[in-house]
Design a protein around this nucleic acid. Structure first.
Length: 294
RNA sequence: GGUUCCAUGUCCGAGUGGUUAGGUACCGGUCUGCAAAACCGUUUACACCAGUUCGAAUCUGGUUGGAACCU
């Protein structure tokens, strides 16, 4: 399994197509937003041409209101990957969703799925009672997590509580912290570039998105703007413009800024991964380097 | 040419004599089920020169730069 990852706008998609074509392999996307149907422009989805050249999986397939998670991705990508590798001997995974890549390569602990009723009920109580109430619930249900989670990060607190409620066991007791062994070889490559190079690629990519009709795309999904799949850099800002709370030029500038911030967060995550081989996008033919490593 | 006003860190912006404004960006970090999410930390000042004062971003004079209005 060849994994190609890296910050946004580093050229992952094109490289993956190049590599896959040389190996007669197919591509599994590891992108938490490209998996949705209806937002091809903000997500910089592979072009029709690229998709004709190489078959892409886990892309452009889910309705915007569908729930999806890193764990589901692990299962889907693992199934697919195994099938493709059995047939072709190799497959290419491409994407920058850090947690998805991590879930696929190292596994994620089995945690029961929280029924929607439990989540909704907890949310209702939380809205009525506030942070301190939720902290108290966590302390009662799972003292270990209470001591471990950053309480200011309310999303994580909420999750620990909902899982504890749904499973009847403390959330922390469900976590093993173990890395799953895979029965296939993984070659993981991370694309990197000097900061200025990456930043200027980001800026021009955003300009291209705007030229390609980002605003029209945002207008189309506007009625559903509260969906998580649309809580995305590029749409949030366009929604603010449509609302009238931000000028168009400022919205575009914000998209560029927020994309830079996103790229930095990806890099911070990747830096911890010592199984990754770094490839500088300004140096030589990367596809050669990758195929040469097989 | 004249009159008036302004000059704070990347940017926005508060502060009229004596503790870090705050926000934002940059930089750094956390991460086991919505992760393009959520959260945290550090750094960067008071245009310049001289003076008053125990003490000046804050008062005075000058220099430089800018804005508005008048001619």
């Amino acid at each position: 399994m060849i994994v190609i990852t890296g910050p946004t706008a580093s050229g992952k998609s094109a490289l993956a197509v190049d590599v896959a074509r040389r190996l007669s392999a197919e591509i599994i996307s590891a992108d938490s937003r490209q998996i949705y149907h209806g937002i091809p422009i903000v997500t910089a989805m592979p072009t029709d041409e690229e998709r004709r050249a190489v078959r892409h999986h886990l892309i452009d397939m889910l309705p915007l209101d569908a729930y999806y998670s890193a764990s589901q991705f692990e299962h889907d990508a693992l199934d697919l990957g195994r099938r493709l590798m059995a047939r072709d001997g190799v497959c290419v995974v491409c994407g920058g969703s850090m947690m998805y890549v991590d879930a696929l390569c190292n596994g994620i602990d089995e945690i029961p799925t929280v029924p929607p009723e439990v989540r909704t009920a907890l949310m209702t109580d939380y809205m009525a009672s506030g942070d301190e109430w939720l902290w108290r619930r966590l302390r009662e249900l799972d003292p270990v997590s209470y001591g471990r989670i950053d309480l200011r990060n309310i999303k994580r607190v909420f999750h620990a509580v909902e899982v504890s409620l749904a499973s009847g066991r403390p959330y922390s007791s469900l976590l093993t912290g173990e890395r799953r062994k895979r029965d296939f070889r993984i070659l993981k490559f991370g694309l990197s570039a000097p900061r200025e190079v990456l930043f200027s690629r980001i800026n021009s990519r955003v300009e291209r998105m705007v030229a390609d009709g980002l605003l029209e795309e945002a207008r189309r999904v506007w009625p559903m703007r509260h969906l998580n799949s649309l809580n995305t850099v590029g749409l949030k800002e366009m929604f603010a413009y449509i609302d009238g709370s931000m000028g168009f030029d400022e919205a575009v500038a914000r998209i560029q800024k927020n994309t830079r911030v996103y790229a930095k967060k990806q890099l911070t995550w990747f830096k911890r991964d010592d199984t990754m081989e770094w490839l500088d996008i300004t140096e030589g033919c990367l596809a050669d380097k990758i195929t040469g490593r097989i």
